[in-house]
Amino acid sequence: MADDRDLPPSLAEQVAMRLRDQVISGVLTPGQRLSEAKLATDLDISRNTLREVFRLLTREGLLKHEPNRGVFVAVPSMASILDIYRVRRLIEVPALAQAWPRHAAVVRMRAAVDRAEAMLPAQDWRAIGSANMEFHAAIVALTDSPRLIAFFAHIIAELRLAFGLLDSPELLHSPYISMNAQILARLEAGDAPAAATMLDDYLSKSERAVMAAFARLG
């Protein structure tokens, strides 16, 4: 019997992936109200299909339904941010520690680093943030596990929502452009364990910066 994961995605799942990508890229922002009529028209789908999309993304924690008000992009809590970083350490650090330096995903990591560095003079922080997300998604791709890769896409989307709440994208992203490059350099040099140690430290620093900025919002 075929695994359900091997079946092609339904229309609702395909559209959910598109909206998830809009969260990851920063197009959809925390607290934003989603117009059912406009989205159904823009996506060229029925409202019934869109409601199934909403249900899928609500289960993932990316959307929130408020009775008599509609559907909104979710606003992460401090507890959820802490949990996201816990999950990231469990997935990303071992993935990097066991990585093969000539894995195809390393090329993706290099492309993400180059893209972020190219966007720095223009201070295009949304594009830099997207490149950073791609860098970390590529780290997980080093595992060659479709299940981990799919799961991490959900985690990255939630993390982008947390980033979207903060009012200093330069403070959030600028220090990590060079850190990503340094991690990649260690991996390309064949020292995956050292790269993983650097990533663990990186995630701790990132978590503290995000939590500190998040606390100032309150």
Score class of each variant (00 low, 15 high):
A209Q: 05
H154K: 08
L199I: 06
G31P: 05
L19K: 04
R20K: 13
A16K: 03
A112C: 09
S178N: 14
Q98R: 15
P101H: 05
S10N: 05
I81Y: 01
W125R: 03
P9C: 09
D6V: 09
G26E: 06
A195C: 13
F151V: 04
R110P: 00
I81N: 01
I155N: 06
P146V: 06
V73M: 13
S204Y: 13
A122L: 12
P8V: 11
R110M: 03
A111S: 11
N132V: 07
L165A: 05
R59L: 07
F135D: 06
P94L: 08
Y202E: 10
Y176V: 01
R55H: 12
R47Y: 02
L28Y: 05
A105Q: 08
R51I: 00
T29I: 10
A196I: 10
R147N: 11
D83E: 14
L171P: 00
D200G: 10
D167T: 12
E92M: 15
R216I: 00
S77Q: 11
L90I: 06
D191A: 13
L11M: 12
V107A: 13
E170V: 00
A2M: 09
S130A: 09
S35I: 09
M78G: 05
Y85N: 12
I139A: 14
R33F: 06
L11K: 12
L43T: 06
A105T: 07
P94E: 09
N48E: 05
I155T: 14
H136R: 07
V23W: 01
V27K: 12
W100E: 15
G26N: 04
S174F: 08
D6N: 09
A162L: 08
V210P: 00
A196T: 07
E207F: 02
F152Q: 13
G164V: 01
V93K: 07
A192K: 00
V23Q: 03
A2T: 11
R55P: 00
L187R: 04
A118G: 10
A112L: 07
N132D: 14
A194C: 11
I155H: 01
I81K: 01
G129E: 00
A104D: 13
L166S: 02
A157K: 02
E52T: 14
A162T: 04
A162K: 04
E92I: 12
P67R: 07
L203F: 08
P101T: 04
G70R: 05
L50Y: 00
L62P: 00
L184D: 05
V93Q: 08
A116S: 15
L19I: 13
A153D: 15
S178Y: 07
V210K: 02
E117S: 15
D4G: 03
V106W: 02
I177C: 13
R69G: 03
A209T: 13
M17N: 10
D83K: 11
L166M: 04
D4Y: 11
S25A: 14
D167P: 01
E52M: 07
L203W: 08
A138V: 10
R18A: 06
I155Q: 11
A215P: 05
A95Q: 09
G164D: 01
T58L: 03
N132M: 09
M211E: 10
E207W: 02
A195N: 05
P169L: 03
V210E: 02
L159T: 15
L96R: 07
E52N: 12
R33W: 06
T197Y: 05
G129H: 02
P169W: 04
E66H: 13
L7W: 09
D4F: 15
E13T: 06
P193M: 08
A74G: 08
